[in-house]
């Protein structure tokens, strides 16, 4: 009990509301989060639909605009052209598709590994828990970015490997969170009851433990997406990630940074798109966290 909790004495809800109703209500009232979510949806829609409406193909080279002096944004090419004379707008949209997809998929990979690992460790307890969490600890202290880089360098630069590499980095936090939750849930009566009724371990984990760890997991997942997108663009920026003919915002920024003195638009457009989506994702993530865990107002 903190001094703060005294601030709303007996503000008990008039009628029962579920945690999720309550959280949704709080989330919808958070203007920053709602604006961010809407912006994000619009941005994703533009990235998905934009290329279909554009008269330019992703790999179409405009020979008259091959020189960067002639590639500035114009009526035909709103974002300008890149160093190979290709339309930048279409490339930014395609890059967005890849970046967002990597963000969602790799987060999903991290989610699956982390939740399974954490729930198992927490539920089994004892020696198994010890060993499993010790592994997590050891992996935490590794300079992981370096391994991702090595992985990308040595095993070819395909997009599938990016998911694996990023997923392998990001699952650690998730495992810790889920384990902590599981440990505290395990001792609760309804788990005991299920166990007494002869329900198997896997079923207890799936049916009773996981649904109850959902809150923190949702919060963490929303906050992990921007981190993952950042990681992907970081790898791509170094030239180790997404490869031609595919592109991503990280790749585009990297190309732009090389030409920024003569063709600043090549840096500015993908940077703006990346920054806006990261901004929005973080705001949505913060909003979800505040909605599910309304501790400080």
């Amino acid at each position: 009990m903190t001094a703060d909790s005294l601030s709303a004495p007996a503000a008990a809800p008039v009628r029962g509301r579920s945690l999720w109703d309550d959280a949704l209500r709080r989330l919808l009232r958070n203007r920053a989060a709602v604006t961010a979510a809407v912006t994000l949806l619009m941005l994703a829609a533009v990235c998905l639909i934009g290329p279909l409406l554009s008269p330019h193909a992703i790999d179409q080279v405009y020979w008259d605009r091959l020189s960067l002096d002639a590639a500035a944004p114009s009526w035909d090419h709103w974002f300008g052209n890149d160093a190979n004379g290709r339309d930048l707008m279409v490339r930014v949209f395609y890059g967005g598709q890849i970046s967002l997809m990597v963000g969602l998929t790799a987060t999903f990979v991290a989610l699956i590994i982390g939740v399974t690992w954490g729930a198992t460790a927490g539920f089994m307890g004892g020696q198994v828990d010890n060993i499993m969490m010790r592994i997590v600890d050891v992996m935490y202290s590794l300079p992981f970015m370096f391994f991702v880089i090595l992985l990308m360098v040595f095993f070819g630069r395909n997009i599938f490997l990016i998911f694996v590499a990023i997923g392998a980095v990001e699952w650690l936090d998730m495992a810790r969170i889920v384990r902590g939750q599981t440990l505290s849930l395990k001792r609760r009566e309804f788990i005991e009851a299920a166990r007494a009724a002869g329900v198997g371990t896997a079923t207890i984990i799936r049916r009773h433990i996981l649904p109850n760890t959902l809150g923190p997991v949702v919060v963490y997942t929303t906050l992990a997406v921007p981190k993952v997108i950042l990681l992907e663009s970081f790898i791509s920026f170094l030239g180790l990630g997404v490869q031609e003919p595919l592109t991503s915002w990280g790749v585009l920024i990297s190309e732009g940074a090389k030409e920024m003195e003569t063709a600043p638009w090549m840096l500015i457009w993908p940077a703006i798109f990346l920054a806006i989506s990261l901004f929005c994702l973080n705001f949505v993530g913060d909003g979800v966290r505040d909605a599910l865990d309304p501790r400080d107002r």
Binding site: A3, D4, L6, S7, P9, A10, R297
Partner: peptide, 21 residues
Amino acid sequence: ESGSGKSQVFLSIMGLLAING
């Protein structure tokens, strides 16, 4: 009972109300 305002009377007097009070 809790919520009867008994603590808040004296937190008010001591100038210790929460920021929204």
